[in-house]
Design a protein around this nucleic acid. Structure first.
Lengths: 216, 216
DNA sequence: AATTGATTTAAACAAATGTTTAAAACAATT
DNA sequence: AATTGTTTTAAACATTTGTTTAAATCAATT
C-alpha cells in the first residue's frame, strides 16, 4: 500500500514514520509501529537514524521538501495583474494546506509542526514561511490604495492566510458542521474562488476606513 | 503559583492536569508530572478519576465550562444593528481563542481538542460549536444582500472564523514573523476591529459577484 | 476514647518503549 | 572460494509509565 514496496529500507522507514507521526504526533508514535509498517526490524530506526528524534526531524525535512516541489507558485511574467497573482497565491496556498482524499501525510505533519514547533525543526518551518509571506505582502501592496501602512497590509495578509488555514485546522469541525455532500463540495477551486473574492473586496476598499474617519 | 494553593486535592489535580495536557498533549503528559505539580501522591489520579483518560476528559470539560462562562456573548436587545452584533461576535470569539499573557490553559486545551479530537470529547467540543455557528449565520443573514444562498453564507462565516482562529493556531509563526513590538500591538481590540472591517466590506458586497456575472 | 470512613502515602507491579548487542545473512570484491 | 563491509534479525536491557496495593494518617462521629 503505502510504504512497503521497492525502496531502500531507510526510505521505507522515513515514509512510514512520516505517516504515523502526522497522525499521532511524536509522543503518540512508537518505534515499533513505524518499523512494522515499514516492514523492517525494530533496530532499523537506530541503525539508520541514530534515534527516534532524528528520524522525526528527517520526516519533517522530507515533508517540507516534498510539499515545496509539489505545489510551487507559478512564476508570473512581468505585468501579470495583481488580482491574478493573488488568486494564484491563494489557490496554491490552499492546495498546500487543505486536507483531502488525495492529500498525503506531508501536509499534516508540517501543519503539526507549525502549530506546535519542535525545537529541532523551528528554523526549517519558519524559514520556509517568511519568504512566502513576503510574496503575499508584495502582491497586496499592488492592490491596496496608496498610503496603506505596512501594519494594515500585514493584517490583511493574516486575514487571507487565516481563511486558507481554517480549512486545515478546523477540518474535523467542518466535517461535523456540514453534510457529507456539502463537505465534499468544498474543493480547492471553490474555496480559492471564494477566498479570493472575499479578500479582494476588502483589500480594494482598504482605505475606505480612513476616508470615513476623515469625514467625521 | 498555579495549582497548589487551598483547594481540594481533586481540584488541584484537575487544574494541574489541564495545564500540562494543554502544553504537551495527552501522550506527552505523565501522571507523575501532574501529581507533582498538584502536590499530590502518584496514586491520587486513579483514586479520584479512575484513570488518566478520564482525568483528561474531566480537564476538557472544565476547560469548556470555564471558557463559556468567562467569555459569554452579550444578549443583544431587539433592534441591535447587525453590524454591532458582528463586531461583538468577533470580539468575543477572539477573546476565546487568542493566546496572550493573561490567557490560561483552558483555551489551549480546547483548541487542541478541536484540531485533534479525542473520541471521548468529540461530542462535547462539537456540540458547543454548532450553536455558535448558527448565531453567526443569523447575524450574517441580516447583513448579506437578499438572495444570498446558504452555501455562500457558510463560506463567509468560515472566512470570519478562520481569520479569528488564525491568531491562535499560527501564534508561533506570527511571533517569528513580527518584532516583539509589533506582536504585542496585536491586542484583542485591534484584531477585532480589523477583522470586523475586513469582513463587513466583503459581506456587504456579497451579491456583487452575481451582479457582475449577470452583466456578462 | 474508640470507631468508622475517607484520604494519603510509599512501595511494588506489569506493560510498554527507546535503545543496544551480538550473531546471522547478505552482497560485492578479490 | 574466501574476504570484507553492510544490512538484518532476535533477544535482551534499562527506563519510563499507568496502575494497584496495603498500610498509615486524618477527620468526623459516637
Amino acid at each position: 500500500m503505502s510504504a512497503h514496496d521497492s525502496d531502500t529500507t531507510r526510505e521505507r522507514i522515513a515514509d512510514a514514520a512520516g505517516e504515523i507521526f502526522a497522525d499521532r504526533g511524536f509522543d503518540g508514535t512508537t518505534v515499533r509501529d513505524i518499523c512494522q509498517r515499514a516492514g523492517a526490524n525494530i533496530a532499523a530506526v537506530n541503525y539508520y537514524f541514530g534515534d527516534k528524534k532524528r528520524l522525526y526531524v528527517e520526516a519533517v525535512v522530507r515533508a517540507h521538501r516534498w510539499r515545496m516541489e509539489q505545489f510551487p507558485l507559478p512564476d508570473w511574467p512581468v505585468g501579470t495583474p495583481a488580482e491574478k497573482k493573488l488568486a494564484d497565491f491563494i489557490t496554491t496556498f490552499i492546495r498546500r494546506v487543505r486536507i483531502g482524499p488525495e492529500i498525503t501525510w506531508h501536509t499534516r505533519l508540517m501543519m503539526r509542526e507549525m502549530a506546535h514547533p519542535t525545537d529541532a525543526c523551528v528554523e526549517l518551518a519558519q524559514s520556509s514561511i517568511r519568504p512566502q509571506f513576503e510574496i503575499l505582502l508584495q502582491i497586496l501592496r499592488e492592490l491596496v490604495p496608496e498610503g496603506t501602512t505596512v501594519d494594515e497590509l500585514r493584517l490583511a495578509a493574516f486575514s487571507i492566510v487565516g481563511q486558507c488555514l481554517f480549512y486545515h485546522f478546523a477540518d474535523p469541525v467542518i466535517r461535523n458542521l456540514l453534510t457529507t455532500e456539502d463537505y465534499t463540495s468544498l474543493d480547492v477551486q471553490r474555496l480559492a474562488e471564494h477566498i479570493t473574492e472575499f479578500s479582494l473586496k476588502s483589500v480594494r476598499h482598504m482605505a475606505q476606513h480612513e476616508r470615513e474617519e476623515a469625514l467625521r
